[in-house]
Write a protein that binds this DNA or RNA. Structure first.
Length: 384
DNA sequence: AAGAGTTGCAACCGCAGGAAA
DNA sequence: CTTTCCTGCGGTTGCAACTCT
């Protein structure tokens, strides 16, 4: 158990990914889905372990990643979520569409921790440093049943629950860590919103009115003003669902598509991709969630189409070919999947636009800058 | 200009839990 | 029921880029 059995079998590449490897992986997953990750490297022709492929895809190659620096609202939201969820980066990431747990974790360790300390707040307890000693001693004495639960978070979450749902609060205090109930209901709220199709502005966890949610946010983060709390709360729920999002107008230029992509494609209504990709089922908002998920399916497609019919990926990437989703494939999955194809298609168009506008030739910008440029639709000029 | 120190981030490692055999 | 395999998560490491002296 443990370790990567796949890594022992043969000498596999480690370290940074080359553009060629990225291309292979993107090509494979876009066409066939990932299926069983352990078989992806073989099927995609990569000298990597499946785990490495999965990580690379989730943290870097997914076309829906935001990239770029975190906004103030995002940072505030991360702090608030961390107060409730602790170091559960994947849970936190689920509330920040387009952000990965790894990205958030890095931000926390490298930046937010420092900022909180500068503000005189203990990043682990979310309490003023003067009180942290008391908090930590309580924690050490077993006040919290979950060693990862910040004491302050327990108290705050419990308090909020008491106001809002007495029975849940009681349960949280007597039998469960407060954050479990809080976060579960928070997530349940998101799920409910996602399935109900209500406007994100009209729905809040626990069935709260917007103002209540702002107050909650303020309680969790008392040092910032209410307007910021409102912004943070808005951000926190912008992954809740509305009806099928509107694809961007075809007339948008690259920068506008980028803006649309964030403002509408993301905010307009879907659960986070993290949830989506982790067996969320249902929506199938992105192509890979509707693609074959079993090795048999993939093998069948590989065998059926044959290598001779291999997609001309570079042409596809540069917009000369339509996305590889066939109408027959998308039709059974409804508007969500069609939108996914549209989303990917527009993403491809934006990449084409960038390439054309900037007269960049891939080999010149390969490597870190290439990826940063290619995957960030908001960038307007090469960062070389 | 060059070396040392710092920072940011991509990637790896080990573990836990669930599913399949 | 046990074993094996696979996935996902959180912690940690390594390195390139940046800043400071």
């Amino acid at each position: 158990m443990g370790g990567h059995s796949c890594c022992y079998k043969q000498k596999l590449r480690k370290g940074l990914w080359s553009p060629e490897e990225d291309e292979k992986l993107i090509k494979h997953i876009t066409k066939y889905g990932h299926g069983c990750w352990s078989s992806v490297p073989k099927l995609a022709g990569l000298q990597r372990c499946g785990k490495s492929c999965r990580l690379r895809w989730i943290n870097y190659l997914r076309p829906d990643l935001k990239r770029g620096t975190f906004s103030q609202q995002e940072e505030e939201l991360i702090i608030e979520l961390h107060a409730v969820l602790g170091n559960r980066w994947s849970k936190i990431a689920a509330h920040l569409p387009g952000r990965t747990d790894n990205e958030i974790k890095n931000l926390w360790n490298s930046c937010i921790k420092k900022k909180l300390k500068q503000r005189g707040i203990d990043p682990s307890t979310h309490q003023p440093v003067a009180d942290s000693a008391v908090a930590s001693s309580e924690k050490n004495s077993g006040a919290s049943s979950d060693p990862r639960v910040p004491v302050a978070a327990n108290a705050e979450a419990g308090g909020l629950l008491e106001q809002l749902t007495p029975s849940a609060a009681e349960e949280s205090i007597t039998s469960r860590p407060g954050k479990e109930v809080f976060s579960d209901q928070f997530l349940v709220g998101h799920e409910a919103a996602a399935s109900s199709g209500r406007s994100s502005l009209g729905f809040f966890p626990f069935g709260l009115a917007a103002a209540d949610c702002v107050v909650q946010s303020h309680l969790l983060w008392p040092s910032h003003d209410l307007a910021m709390s409102a912004a943070a709360v808005s951000a926190s729920i912008f992954s809740t669902s509305v009806a099928a999002p509107t694809p961007p107008p075809a007339c948008l230029d690259g920068a506008s598509i980028g803006s649309w992509y964030e403002a509408d494609c993301f905010a307009g209504g879907r659960r986070s991709v993290v949830e989506e990709s982790r067996g969320g089922g249902g929506g199938g908002m992105f192509p890979w969630s509707d693609l074959p998920t079993s090795d048999k399916d993939i093998q069948a497609q590989l065998g059926g189409e044959g290598e001779g019919e291999e997609l001309k990926w570079l042409e596809y990437l540069h917009g000369a070919l339509p996305p590889p989703l066939q109408p027959a494939q998308t039709a059974p999955f409804g508007a969500g999947t069609q939108f996914a194809a549209s989303c990917l298609s527009n993403w491809q168009q934006s990449q084409q636009f960038l390439l054309e506008q900037q007269q960049i030739q891939a080999p010149e910008i390969y490597g870190k800058d290439f990826h940063h440029q290619i995957w960030n639709p908001n960038l307007s000029k090469p960062q070389i």
